[in-house]
C-alpha cells in the first residue's frame, strides 16, 4: 500500500499561542486513520490544514501527491469531507445535496446524476429518504447523508470530522460499520477525527494521539497496541480510563 497523505513537520500558531508543532505522519492508501486527543489539542485544526481551509504556519501537507497549500484545487478534487454538523444544504433535498458536486464537476445528464445520487444514498442506508429535506431527518441520518455527499465523486480520500459525536451508541456503531464497508467496497482512504473510544477501536487501522500540553503527537500506532502497551500516561488514561 502506497502513501496517499503525507504530513511533514507541520506546525500551527495563532499569534504567540502554539497549537502544535512539528507534527509528521503519513496515511496509507485504503487505511482508516484516526486523529484523536482531548479537547483543545488541535485535532480539528490539523483537519482544517489537511483539507486546505487553514494554511499551516510551517510544514507541508500533501494529499494524493498534491501540495495542499499550493495545489488546493487538485487536492479538493481528490477528497470528500464530512463536517461535524453534517452541513447539508437546508434548501435542497438529500438527492440534490448529493447530486450537487456531480452537476458542477461532471457532464452527467440530470437523469444519470439522479441515478448515481440515489445509489450513493442507498450505500449509506438512505435509499428511501432521497426526497426529504435535511430538516426532516434525524441527526444520524444527516451524518449518513453528509457521507453520501462526500462520496459524490468517489474521491480516493474522505475526511470525517467527529462522525459519531452526538449519536446514540447503536447509530454510532452503524456509522462505524458503514465506514468500514465503504472502505472495503470503494477502496477509499478515511481520515477520521474523533475522541469516541469505541469508534476508534472499531474502525481504526492506525491512529495518532495529539496532546495539548505536549503541543504535538504523543502516540502513534494501532489502537489495540496503544491500549495494551503504551507507557505514556495520557495514552493509558485515554484508552484504559485510568486517572492521570
Amino acid at each position: 500500500m502506497g502513501t496517499i497523505i503525507q504530513v511533514d513537520d507541520v506546525s500551527q500558531h495563532f499569534a504567540s499561542r502554539v497549537i502544535f508543532k512539528n507534527v509528521s505522519f503519513s496515511v496509507a492508501t485504503s487505511e482508516v486513520f484516526v486523529i484523536l486527543g482531548g479537547s483543545g489539542c488541535g485535532k480539528s485544526t490539523l483537519l482544517k490544514q489537511m483539507i486546505g481551509l487553514l494554511t499551516p504556519t510551517a510544514g507541508r501537507i500533501s494529499v494524493c501527491g498534491h501540495d495542499v497549500t499550493t495545489d488546493t484545487e487538485a487536492v479538493r478534487r481528490s477528497m470528500g469531507v464530512m463536517f461535524q454538523s453534517g452541513a447539508l444544504f437546508g434548501s435542497m433535498n438529500l438527492l440534490d445535496n448529493v447530486a450537487l458536486a456531480m452537476a458542477v464537476f461532471t457532464d452527467l445528464p440530470a437523469s444519470a446524476r439522479q441515478e448515481i445520487a440515489r445509489m450513493k444514498l442507498a450505500m449509506v442506508g438512505l435509499g428511501d429518504a432521497a426526497l426529504r429535506l435535511p430538516a426532516e431527518i434525524s441527526g444520524g441520518m444527516a451524518k449518513r447523508a453528509a457521507i453520501a455527499r462526500a462520496l459524490a465523486l468517489d474521491p480516493p480520500v474522505l475526511f470525517l470530522d467527529e462522525p459519531s459525536a452526538g449519536l446514540d451508541p447503536i447509530t454510532s456503531a452503524g456509522l462505524d460499520a458503514l465506514i468500514l464497508e465503504l472502505r472495503d467496497t470503494l477502496g477509499a482512504t478515511f481520515v477520521v477525527v474523533t475522541h469516541e473510544l469505541q469508534s476508534i477501536l472499531a474502525i481504526s487501522d492506525r491512529c495518532i494521539m495529539l496532546d495539548r500540553e505536549a503541543q504535538g503527537i504523543i502516540a502513534m500506532g494501532k489502537p489495540k497496541d496503544l491500549q495494551a502497551h503504551s507507557d505514556v500516561k495520557m495514552v493509558r488514561a485515554f484508552f484504559n480510563r485510568e486517572s492521570l
Partner: peptide, 18 residues
C-alpha cells in the same frame, strides 16, 4: 450496489409527507 438498489422515487408520496 446490486444488493442495495434503491426503490423507485415516489415524489407524490414524499411530497404529501413533506
Amino acid at each position: 450496489l446490486r444488493k442495495i438498489i434503491p426503490p423507485p422515487l415516489n415524489r407524490q408520496e414524499e411530497q404529501r409527507a413533506s
